[in-house]
Simulated scan of single mutants.
Amino acid sequence: MNTPRRGLYSGSFDPLTNGHLDVLARGLQLFDELIVAIGIHPGKTPMFSPVERTEMIAAATRELAGHERLRVVEFSGLVVDVARSQGAGFLLRGLRDGTDLDYEFQMSGMNRQLAPAIDTIFLPASTGVRPITATLVRQIAQMGGDIGGFVPPVVAKAIKEKVRRAG
């Protein structure tokens, strides 16, 4: 019996964007199983709790082909440690531009030193989602801008509600 190809896609996903969805959809074409690993950083104050992010990812990915091969976990610490604990042999990373490329190459080199059995796969962002960042989405929403083109509908609704309650 063949061992399944298992990939791990990590990030804060605060919030999940259409760029993240693009990488997830394409990752499901590459792997038998794909784990979305939500990084929890104690020094940061996220817009959404880990539970809320998990629920939004589940809701936004239900329509993706192969979504039943996707699961979500939370982690703090090193991404290679969560990859090992989940049995993932690959880290999946999206690249928007040259800045991402420089940073991700550096990270992949360090991760390879820490965990030689885990490799990194880079996917260039699709043209339509290249400029989207979660930080910009949060900023636009907080200033009353329309974020509908940048995030899945379930996420747009959740952000609008958070901003409304905060304002």
Rank of each mutant, 00 (worst) to 15 (best):
M110N: 04
I57C: 03
L64A: 04
H41D: 12
I132E: 11
L91I: 12
G98S: 06
G87L: 12
S49G: 04
S49M: 09
I38C: 02
D97F: 02
L92Q: 04
D81F: 00
R130C: 03
F122Y: 10
M110Q: 11
M47V: 14
S126C: 09
P124N: 12
Y103S: 14
G39E: 02
I57L: 13
F122S: 02
G89K: 04
E68W: 02
K44T: 14
A59P: 01
L114M: 15
L136R: 00
Q139T: 14
G89Q: 10
A65M: 08
G149Q: 14
A115I: 11
N111P: 07
A141G: 01
L95C: 06
A117G: 11
L70P: 03
D100V: 06
V73Q: 03
T99H: 01
G149V: 13
A60E: 13
L92R: 04
Q139F: 04
T127Q: 11
E74Q: 15
D102S: 05
T45R: 13
D102W: 03
I118R: 00
E52H: 08
P124E: 14
T54H: 12
M47F: 14
G87H: 14
L136E: 14
R62H: 04
T135I: 01
V137H: 08
I132G: 11
T99D: 14
G66N: 12
D97K: 03
P116C: 04
L78C: 11
A115F: 02
L70K: 01
T120N: 11
A88M: 10
V79G: 03
R130T: 09
F75Q: 01
M56G: 12
T61D: 07
I40V: 15
L123N: 03
D100F: 01
R53H: 08
E63Q: 13
T99R: 03
K44Y: 06
I40Y: 07
I40W: 09
D97Q: 03
G149Y: 06
A88H: 02
L123M: 15
D119E: 15
S49K: 05
F90T: 07
R138F: 04
Q106L: 11
S76D: 15
V73Y: 06
G128M: 09
G128Q: 10
Q142S: 09
Q106D: 12
I147C: 09
V129K: 00
E74T: 15
A83P: 10
G148N: 10
M56N: 08
S108R: 11
T61Y: 01
L101Q: 05
P46Y: 10
G89V: 10
L95T: 05
I38G: 08
G144A: 01
M110D: 01
P124L: 15
R69A: 09
A37P: 05
G128A: 15
R62W: 00
V72L: 01
R71F: 00
G145T: 06
F122L: 12
M47Q: 11
E52A: 11
P131C: 08
I118Y: 02
A58Q: 15
A60H: 07
R138I: 12
